[in-house]
């Protein structure tokens, strides 16, 4: 009996040790151009395994410090991002941009206390209003990776225009459509376009706050930049970096199809369950989390299409 107990205890403590996770996101800066780096996230949904590392964040090394673009999904991510940035440059963060108010893009803000954090006014308002709810939900989805994370709103707002940061010319584009405020940043020196979540690459777009018409217009604006002579790369909000406009075209095709599919389903008289059961077209079958995002999007977009299709009864 004593032997059995000892064995049980030994097994139990071993299991405890083995189960203690390191909460290491394993962030490795990927060089996109001279002085421009990105941490590429996984093509997945939030989970207790990935800790929310499903997003692309980046930084630009300037003469005055690091310009940081999005801070990731948690306090731990923000802290680990700082450590990973120091592997590239000893410079301190100069300024943090939040591209929009979705939680995987700003919940690392807390790690950048003392550094100016800037965003569009709509983004600042969205974080102030919904940030805590988003954080609570990520505790549910990502578990202990979120430990200590609190929503920190941007400290200042910006608008469209060309600015100089640490001697580097950045073009800020105040767009919308994915959310009420979507900031894209074009680094004129390197020709790298940080598109935020206006652009997804081989990962199905998310639509909880989407306005598709406006989103499509924003994509046109971004595609025009890719035709400029200095353009070199797109950093999408999710998915791999590319040297061409392919992910812009793919995001546009998905949104157009989704919009049309919702209208058609409503006009055909389908019930919500029947719309959810529809298959993806072949061209999107290979996209990461395609079916899952389609189903979420049906929940977001079908009610409006349905309402449009039903006539007024007297």
């Amino acid at each position: 009996m004593k032997h059995l107990l000892a064995c049980l205890l030994a097994c139990f403590s071993t299991a405890l040790v083995a189960a203690e996770p390191a909460f290491d996101y394993g962030l490795q800066a990927q060089r996109v151009a001279d002085d421009v780096y990105v941490f590429v996230g996984r093509d997945e949904d939030f989970s207790t395994v990935n800790g929310g590392n499903i997003v692309n964040t980046g930084f630009i090394v300037t003469a005055a410090g690091l310009v940081v673009i999005d801070s990731g999904p948690s306090l731990r991510y923000g802290q680990q991002m700082q450590r990973a940035m120091r592997q590239v440059s000893p410079a301190a963060p100069l300024q943090v941009f939040n591209t929009h108010h979705h939680p995987d893009h700003f919940l690392g803000n807390q790690a950048f206390a003392g550094t100016p954090i800037v965003a569009l006014e709509a983004t600042r308002q969205g974080i102030a209003a919904e940030g805590n709810t988003f954080a609570e939900n990520l505790y549910r989805l990502s578990g202990d990776w979120m430990k200590g994370t609190e929503s920190v709103a941007p400290t200042a707002t910006i608008t469209s225009g060309r600015i100089q940061l640490g001697g580097r010319a950045l073009r800020l584009l105040a767009l919308n459509g994915h959310t009420e405020g979507d900031l894209a940043i074009y680094d004129e020196t390197s020709g790298v376009l940080f598109a935020g979540d206006l652009v997804f690459n081989n990962r199905a777009p998310t639509t909880p706050h989407a306005r598709i018409e406006r989103w499509l217009a924003s994509l046109d604006t971004l595609e025009a930049i890719t035709r400029e002579p200095g353009f070199s790369a797109i950093v999408p909000g999710h998915g791999a970096i590319t040297r061409d406009a392919a992910p812009i075209r793919q995001t546009r095709a998905w949104l157009r199809w989704l919009d049309q599919a919702m209208r058609q389903a409503a006009a055909d008289g389908l019930d919500l369950n029947e719309v959810l059961a529809r298959p993806l077209p072949a061209e999107f079958a290979g996209m990461a989390v395609g079916m899952r995002e389609y189903r979420r999007s049906v929940g977001h977009l079908f009610p409006a299409a349905e309402q449009e299709a039903l006539g007024h009864a007297h």
Binding site: H102, F134, P208, L272, R292, H300
Partner: peptide, 22 residues
């Protein structure tokens, strides 16, 4: 009843109240 939709919506970081209401 669409069970997959429910599971998917559990991972919806933003509109986590939308689905249990619909």
């Amino acid at each position: 009843i669409d069970r997959k939709a429910q599971i998917a919506e559990m991972n919806d970081q933003v509109t986590n109240l939308l689905n249990p209401m619909q």
